[in-house]
Design a protein around this nucleic acid. Structure first.
Lengths: 226, 226
DNA sequence: ATTAAACGTAAATTTAACGTAAATTTAGCG
DNA sequence: CGCTAAATTTACGTTAAATTTACGTTTAAT
């Protein structure tokens, strides 16, 4: 496997210095950002395998960043916090953090926690393109190719297709899809999804009755068939 | 999905009391052991989905227990520790713990961490497929295979078959089945079940008179024979 | 032998879920 | 601001699943 890429979003230069050294020493690839907006950009462009996020950022509130990242993908996030309030911690974990460390912390503990997260979640980097028989799906931009003709997708259509196509043959539940794309789930929201599926199928020229790409599993979810 | 089962191994009765209350309130099933040896036994027999392990056990050293559990399976383990040494924590995480909490801790934080672990690791107590002579039953989706031809089941048919097939040879009472599938039970509801059994048998090409898969035990219930 | 209780199954009915078109609202951009 | 594309909401026809009804068959007890 490639070196896991780890993105540190923190405004303290000292933290960057000593974390980057330890990370590279441990065989990780280090990426660094000093504020939330460039951190989000880096997340989109460089596809890190894990994010270390400081909550006390200058531009955007850390928990907002957390929510934004969670909306896009399920990358493991380790939060650094100065506060030692237990209620705060609970909020963080519920908001989507996978773990946290209070400053000051020991670098060894940070490394250990990173390893645990990478081990448990078995995060695998996603290739730039997914190739299937007649279909190519770009993962960085909402575009697909069918027999070499390009088709533009909307952001949501793209997210949906990726979610399904990354797990070819696997049945993905409606709930999972709703959470992945809309961030939350209220029972009865599945009509959003039905419409989105229709739009996507239309663009892919897929027939719901006799699908080549997206198969409905009634009462449960959808499945990408290849 | 079934309630996640959580095993607490700790020698303090008070801890058991207030953790068990919170766990059940949060929809988990609580299992409790007071020492390491019975904890290990419970782990083997009851297949919990997560273990909360206190390090200060009377009989065996906690980290030895940790290692033993790790040897058998990759169930998430949350360690409780009185010590606050960072070096100790690192050792724990490297030894196979997925997370830890120092006593005293807030119960809310414990619950939050449990949820994160269960969410991330997506621990599946049941294997993805149950294999029998000529029959393969998918557990995540309503599909079975008989001699490599796939057969689609409805949700209820699938639930019923799983309930029976997870306990091969065991007689399951009608009442148990009704409760498991419909959530409640009113005497005289068994005709629902008879119809469902018929549907299922038809799809499995099973003959009620001379069954290969589902045997009727008149007056009591049904039994999966393999 | 007759009867009652329990079962199996076919068919009818009701309910839930899906797919799609069209209308409306929201968001991004010059 | 005004335009365009995207996202959401509404509405409705269609299909599949679940439930209900009805009835014939087996089994075991009187």
């Amino acid at each position: 496997m490639n070196k896991p890429r780890i993105l540190l979003i923190d405004d303290e230069e000292k933290i960057h210095q000593f974390i980057s050294i330890s990370l590279t020493a441990e065989g990780f690839e280090y990426l660094g950002c000093r504020d939330a907006s460039s951190g989000l950009e880096c997340f989109q462009n460089d596809k890190p395998n894990l994010i270390i996020l400081d909550l006390g950022l200058p531009d955007i509130d850390g928990s907002a960043v957390l929510a934004m990242i969670r909306k896009i993908g399920n990358i493991p996030i380790l939060v650094l916090t100065a506060r030692e309030q237990s209620a705060e911690k609970v909020k963080l974990l519920n908001a989507g953090a996978n773990d946290y460390l209070s400053k000051p912390f020991e670098i060894k503990e940070l490394i250990a926690r990173i390893k645990v997260l990478l081990r448990d979640i078995q995060y695998e980097p996603i290739p730039a393109e997914l190739h299937f028989e007649n279909l190519i799906i770009r993962t960085f931009e909402p575009m697909v190719f069918i027999k070499n003709t390009s088709i533009h997708l909307t952001k949501k259509e793209h997210q949906l297709l990726l979610l399904l196509a990354i797990n070819p043959g696997v049945l993905i539940s409606q709930k999972k899809i709703l959470v992945a794309i809309w961030g939350e789930f209220h029972s009865g929201d599945s009509h959003y999804l039905r419409v989105l599926i229709t739009h996507l199928r239309k663009k892919l020229k897929d027939d719901a009755e006799d699908p080549i790409y997206i198969k409905t599993e009634p009462g449960i979810g959808y499945r990408f068939i290849c």
